[in-house]
């Protein structure tokens, strides 16, 4: 990993940047929508200053305990396989990220989103919205109860299907740590043809896939999957006071 360094009179944390071999690029040739949307010019390096090492600490007042159970948001229960999705939010130094907002959204068991522009012929479920929120606990743990989302077709290429996934959004504690991503399920047979999954460098793909967690299944009730999420951590190497005025 490399970090971005400035000579600083303020003692600010510096957040490590994952190397390119383990980081999703902004654009990917097989993903058509990137063609007109992903910026073409190389980004300018922005050393971390006060605005970048701080960030919104959202949570209290925005989330209720009920928001973590996507199967209890309507009068009836949604169709599909009930699952628990849980894990920890850590930084790359292995430190838990406590009390941080985790937002998820997903398709229903048939792969349909409750959204006006999703109109493929799979029915909506009147008992499923597909939105969840929670805060990690003091040890960085999160847990949702939901149903396993279905795969869905899309227009990217001939007979294109998205592997089943749950969208995640995380803040951490700094602007540099912001992450929006997708969690997949083990051994999905659709991985091979999905450009969004395959845009992730091969070495990092396992980090996007949850683990079936028999230990955490609830007898006669729910299956379980575990997925830890790792945000950028602070550089712990000693601060050098000489000759590091330039970007690393």
């Amino acid at each position: 990993m490399t970090g971005t360094t400035i000579r600083s009179e303020l003692h600010l944390p510096r957040y490590l940047r994952e190397d390119d071999a383990h980081r999703t690029p902004v654009a990917f040739e097989g993903y058509r929508s990137t063609g007109l949307r992903a910026p073409l010019r190389a980004p300018v390096d922005l050393p971390h200053r006060l605005t970048e090492v701080t960030g919104p600490l959202l949570g209290e007042g925005r989330v209720t305990a009920a928001d973590a159970d996507l199967t209890r948001q309507h009068d009836g229960e949604p169709q599909g396989q009930r699952i628990i999705v849980h894990g920890r939010v850590l930084d790359s130094g292995g430190k838990p990220v406590p009390h941080t907002l985790v937002e998820v959204w997903q398709a229903n068991a048939g792969g349909r989103y409750r959204h006006v522009v999703d109109n493929w012929p799979s029915p909506l479920d009147p008992n499923f919205t597909g939105l969840g929120r929670t805060l990690t606990d003091g040890e960085g743990r999160y847990e949702f109860t939901t149903i396993r989302p279905g795969a869905y077709p899309w227009g990217n290429h001939d007979n294109a299907w998205r592997p089943a996934h749950i969208h995640f959004s995380l803040f951490g504690t700094a602007f540099t740590q912001r992450l929006v991503t997708q969690m997949y399920f083990p051994d999905d047979p659709l991985f091979f043809q999905d450009p969004i999954f395959n845009a992730i460098p091969e070495a990092a793909r396992p980090l996007a896939i949850s683990r079936f967690d028999y230990e955490r299944t609830v007898p006669n009730w729910a299956l379980a999957f575990e997925w830890d999420i790792v945000l950028r951590g602070k550089d712990q190497t000693p601060f050098e006071t000489e000759d590091d005025g330039d970007i690393a």
Binding site: D91, G93, V117, H167, V180, T181, Q182, L207, A208, L231
Partner: peptide, 14 residues
């Protein structure tokens, strides 16, 4: 060091 979780598009249904 742990590897960071790779990002993904927010998609059309945010």
């Amino acid at each position: 060091q742990l590897r960071t979780t790779p990002s993904a598009t927010i998609g059309p249904f945010l």
